[in-house]
Amino acid sequence: MTKKETTLKDWINVTVILQILICLAVAIPIAVPIGLPVPITEYTRNVYNIVESIEPGSVVLFTNEVSAGGWGEMASPTTAVMQHLFKRPVKIVFVEFFEDSPILTEMALDKIDKGDKVYGVDYVHLGFVPGYGTAVAMFAKSVWTAFPVDYHGTPLEELPLMADIEDASDFEIQIEAQTVPAVGPVDMLQHIHSPYEVPFVVIATAVAAPGHMAYVESGDISGITIGVKGGAEYEILIKRLGAGAATMDAMSISHLLLIIVLIVGNIIYFTKRRGP
C-alpha cells in the first residue's frame, strides 16, 4: 500500500482558513496596536470605588485562587487591583487556597510599585494552605493555625502586621481573584463572608462571572470585575496601563471576527436548507 502524499490543496479548506483568520485577528493588533477605545463599565467602576473607600489603616484580605493556565486572563485585573491597594493607606494580607497561586501572587508583587509599604508591617504574603473549602474554614477560624509561618518561612510572631489578626473578623474587606472551580467565592461566602460579615469583592474570570451574578444580586458579593476587559478598565482607572490594555485591540477584533463567522455560518446554513 502506498502512502498518500499530502498536497497543499488537501490542507486548504474552510477549517484551516478560519484558524488562520483567528490567528491574524489576534496577532496583527498585537504587532501593530490600533488603540481602539475601552469604555469603563459600571462593574469595574464599582470595584474601584469600593477599594477607594476602604478606611485608612484597615487590613484587607486578598485571596488568590488563579490557576497558572488562567493567569493570561487574570494577570491584568489581579495586578491592577493589587496596585490600587498598594496606593491606598491600607494593610494587605495575601493568602492562597489553590496550589498554582502563591507563585502567581509573587509574580504580581514583583511587578507592582509598592511605594513606601514595608513587608511585614504594611503587607504580608502568608502563602498557600491545602484542603480547599476545609482550609478556608480553618483559616477563617484561626489564621495562626493555618499559617504558623509566612510564604518565606518567617514565623508570624516576627511580622508586626499579624499581631492583631486572629480570625477572619479582623479583616475589613476581602478581595478574591479566582479562576478554578475547586475553591472560590462560594467557599469564601460560606466560611468568611457569612459567619464573620466581611464584605466580599470578586475579580472573576469571564467564564465564572455569570455564575457569581446571583450572589451579586443578593448583595453577598459587593463588587465584581470581569475578565481581562475588567482588568484593562481598572488599569485605565488607576492610570497605569499594563497587560490588560495591551490585549484590548486583539480582543475587540477577534470577538468581531467570531460574530461575523457566526452570522456567515448561519446565512450559509439557511441558503443550503432552502436550496434544491
Partner: peptide
C-alpha cells in the same frame, strides 16, 4: 493548552452554531 480551544471555537461557530 487552555488557549488551544480558540482554534476550535471559530470552526464550531461556523459549523455548529446554526439557528
Amino acid at each position: 493548552v487552555f488557549s488551544l480551544i480558540s482554534f476550535y471555537v471559530i470552526t464550531s461557530f461556523y459549523r455548529a452554531m446554526s439557528i
